[in-house]
Write a protein that binds this DNA or RNA. Structure first.
Length: 109
DNA sequence: CCATTGACGAAGA
DNA sequence: TTCTTCGCCAATG
């Protein structure tokens, strides 16, 4: 179950790759981006088998915090390297760093 | 086909 | 605001 491969996952990956540097996206947003075909939990499943080239570190939960998954330290380090600030409680201000995607053209990249 | 699990979210207490 | 409960879809055994 390390590397799930499915059509649904590819969509999640494609959206994650569109997240610009210095911005973050939540699981719930990704769920919306794929038009509800994937629940937040499904997104988590997709990222569990995410390819190494995927910027999965830009995906955080609705609270703006990093969910435990293996090495949250690396994720935080990468985000900080992109200019994302963390609060004292380890949370990100989604109002400032949350990515607002445009689902104009491609809902299915 | 059924039960369980998971890097989650929203609503209720 | 924090904790609990429920629900969601996909994958695994």
């Amino acid at each position: 179950m390390k590397q799930p491969r499915g059509a649904v996952f590819e969509r999640v990956y494609a959206w994650v790759r569109r997240v610009p540097r210095g911005k973050v996206v939540t699981y719930g947003q990704l769920s919306e981006l794929v038009d509800g075909r994937v629940t937040p939990v499904g997104v988590g499943w997709a990222l569990a088998g995410a390819p190494p080239d995927l910027p999965w570190h830009r995906v955080v939960n609705a609270r703006g915090a990093i969910s435990p998954h293996g090495e949250p330290e690396m994720q935080r380090a990468r985000l900080e390297a992109e200019g994302v600030r963390f609060g004292a409680d380890g949370r990100i201000d989604l109002q400032a760093y949350g990515w607002r995607p445009r689902r104009r053209q491609a809902n299915r990249p």
